[in-house]
Simulated assay, not measured.
Amino acid sequence: MIFRLDERLLFPAPELAEEDGLLAIGGDLSTDRLLLAYQNGIFPWYSDDEPILWYSPHERFVLYPQELKISKSMKRVLRSEPFRVTTNTCFNDVVAACSSIQREGQDGTWITDDMKAAYAKLHSEGHAHSVEVWQDDRLVGGLYGVHTGDVFCGESMFSRVSNASKTALIWLCNTGRYKLIDCQVYTEHLESMGARMISREEYIGVLHKTTA
């Protein structure tokens, strides 16, 4: 059963999600609703021609920073210092760059204009952050996401040159700020860097422990 949200600020229990993780439909992208969603392991994912869809997958693809794996070749790249890394200097530019990336199995961008506006507001209020990777003063990679407690919920990343997005993720792990990074969608290269699947129960347990 898929729940239809109204103006009330609430979500059904995540364990009631469908097999594909779809939990609810409707509602809005207000800051309060988005924060409530992330605090309970729920996130929006939809296209322009759809209503807002809210997901809580049965498994989450995550990276514990202490389990980060950096290949020998990537260590050589980092030692050569080809990039400069900043944070929160051009959040909207990072989101715009990520919006050209398509998620597997979905036509068009999932980062709609409404999503861009909602996350820009989250950023302005200190809840969403970006990591930027520069080469010769050109933005060549980065990522953005939402933090809740000690968990960073990654939304998307992009790379215009080799190793730029990896550099952003490594930088994020090395800040020591987060106990868990939610990667959401499985990719081979993130798996090679130490990301793995955990159950929704384990994921929500970490969320609630770090936000208590």
Score class of each variant (00 low, 15 high):
Arg138Thr: 14
Ser73Asp: 12
Arg84Lys: 10
Met157Lys: 02
His189Ile: 00
Glu188Met: 10
Arg8Ser: 11
Arg200Thr: 01
Arg103Gln: 09
Asp114Val: 07
Tyr64Asn: 11
Leu143Pro: 07
Gly108Ser: 05
Gly108Pro: 15
Asp113Trp: 05
Tyr186Ala: 11
Ala168Gly: 12
Gly205Pro: 08
Ala164Asn: 10
Met197Leu: 14
Asn40Ser: 08
Val161Asp: 10
Asp93Ile: 01
Thr210Asp: 04
Val62Pro: 03
Lys166Ser: 09
Gly27Cys: 08
Glu104Arg: 04
Cys173Thr: 11
Ile70Val: 15
Thr175Arg: 12
Val151Trp: 00
Asp113Tyr: 01
Leu10Met: 06
Asp28Phe: 12
Asp150Glu: 10
Lys69Leu: 11
Ile101Glu: 12
Gln106Lys: 11
Thr86Ile: 12
Ala128Trp: 01
Thr167Asn: 07
Tyr203Leu: 01
Thr31Gly: 02
Arg200Gly: 00
Ile70Leu: 11
Gly176Arg: 08
Leu169Phe: 08
Tyr55Arg: 05
Trp171Arg: 04
Ala37Val: 05
Leu53Ala: 14
Cys183Ala: 14
Gly21Leu: 08
Lys116Leu: 01
Ile42Glu: 07
Leu5Asn: 13
Ser165Gly: 04
Gly27Tyr: 08
His147Pro: 03
Glu67Pro: 15
Gly142His: 01
Arg103Asn: 04
Ser159Gln: 11
Thr167Val: 02
Leu16Met: 08
Leu169Met: 12
Tyr186Trp: 12
Leu35Gln: 08
Ile70Lys: 07
Thr210Glu: 07
Val62Trp: 05
Glu7Tyr: 03
Glu50His: 09
Glu15Pro: 00
Gly194Pro: 14
His58Tyr: 03
Leu122Asn: 01
Tyr46Asp: 11
Tyr186Pro: 10
Ala118Ser: 10
Phe61His: 05
Asn88Tyr: 06
Asp182Gly: 03
Ala168Phe: 01
Met1Pro: 15
Ala118Lys: 06
Asp93Met: 05
Asp32Lys: 14
Ala120Trp: 01
His127Asn: 11
Arg33Trp: 13
Thr89Trp: 03
Glu191Leu: 00
Phe152Lys: 04
Trp45Pro: 09
Arg8Gly: 02
Trp171Pro: 05
Tyr119Leu: 09
Trp134Cys: 13
Asp114Glu: 15
Ser199Arg: 00
Leu78Asp: 15
Pro82Phe: 15
Ala97Gly: 09
Val161Arg: 04
Arg4Gly: 07
Glu201Ser: 09
Glu50Gly: 02
Leu35Ala: 03
Trp134Thr: 10
Leu36Ile: 11
Asp150Leu: 02
Tyr178Leu: 10
Glu191Thr: 04
Ser159Phe: 03
Glu125Lys: 15
Ser130Lys: 04
Gly141Lys: 00
Leu29Phe: 05
Ser192Trp: 00
Gly27Leu: 04
Arg84Asn: 10
Ser162Glu: 13
Thr112Asn: 13
